[in-house]
């Protein structure tokens, strides 16, 4: 006599299989119901097949919400393979061929032009080939040369750029509204008390927030007393910022869902909404 859990599990599996079969039949019926329009282009059937497959893959992906299942895993791995293949071909087409093959073997009108291009490109081509040595356990040390070149360049050029863009410009923007409010008035219009006060208050809030958040992350000093108060203020600003980010993240994810639903309703369904 089967244990009760085993019976429940078998019943659930049978129900799931029945639902799956009914779902597949319904999907095929709905997909086939869309008629070819009178003014359809020649490749309408190819596109329609693509839309059906896309809709099928979309619904299979959403089956994950019920639970992980073999169909989802097949679709997921198929997608990974296609993405990999697409990336490889695009890298060849858009990066390696126009940077190496065309300039060396297609475009040069004569041998001298080929030599000029070759001289210009041989070093990065060799370095790129050395980069691929990363995949070899024995020769991976060779890949350190191109990597240190790229990392060193990035680190060196990054320092002045970071200082200018992320520090100086940002600090200037934090202080500028206060100095502007103190010195200038809109041409031909008196700003009035609130016209001056509100921007100044806003700038003080921004300065206070920036300083307190920076202080919160400064762990070399104990956060007690006045420092503790500033640190607490920083936490409050951070919480408001994280809440705002959460709100926007919800908005972003819901938008993605809306996009897929629109595809299913507009492109896949026979009556296209």
């Amino acid at each position: 006599m089967a244990a009760p859990e085993e019976t429940t599990s078998r019943t659930r599996r049978t129900t799931e299989i029945v639902i799956l079969v009914v779902g597949i039949v319904a999907f095929l019926v709905v997909s086939a119901a869309k008629k070819q329009p009178a003014d359809a282009p020649d490749d309408w059937w190819v596109r329609r097949l693509g839309v059906i497959i896309a809709a099928g893959l979309t619904l299979i992906m959403y089956s994950f919400l019920y639970r992980d299942n073999p169909l989802f895993k097949v679709a997921e791995n198929l997608f990974v393979g296609v993405a990999l293949g697409y990336g490889a071909i695009i890298t060849w087409r858009e990066s390696l061929r126009p940077e190496i093959v065309d300039p060396l073997f297609v475009d040069p009108p004569h041998f001298h032009a080929f030599l000029m291009e070759f001289a210009r490109r041989i070093v990065p081509i060799l370095l790129g080939a050395l980069l691929l040595m990363r995949l070899s356990r024995r020769l991976s040390w060779l890949s350190r040369y191109p990597i240190t070149l790229m990392v060193g360049w990035g680190a060196g050029i990054g320092i002045p750029i970071t200082v200018h863009t992320y520090i100086l410009q940002q600090l200037q923007a934090s202080v500028a509204p206060l100095t502007a409010a103190a010195t200038a008035a809109p041409v031909g219009q008196a700003p009035g008390f609130w016209g001056v006060t509100l921007p100044v208050l806003g700038s003080i809030v921004i300065l206070a927030g920036t300083v307190s958040v920076l202080f919160y992350f400064f762990f070399s000093v104990e956060h007690t007393g006045a420092g503790g108060t500033v640190s607490r203020l920083g936490i409050w600003f951070l919480m408001i910022s994280f809440g705002a980010s959460f709100g926007y993240t919800v908005m972003g994810r819901v938008s993605l869902l809306i996009g897929r639903v629109e595809f299913l309703l507009k492109d896949w369904l026979p009556w296209g909404m």
Binding site: Q169, S245, Y248, G252, I258
Partner: peptide, 26 residues
């Protein structure tokens, strides 16, 4: 930009490094 990264761009809007931003589907 996507809505997820829109909040991170406000410092650049205030500093004038960005002239404006279209955030997400909105």
């Amino acid at each position: 930009c996507t809505a997820v990264i829109a909040p991170d761009l406000y410092p650049f809007l205030q500093s004038g490094q960005l002239v404006g931003v279209l955030g997400g589907l909105r």
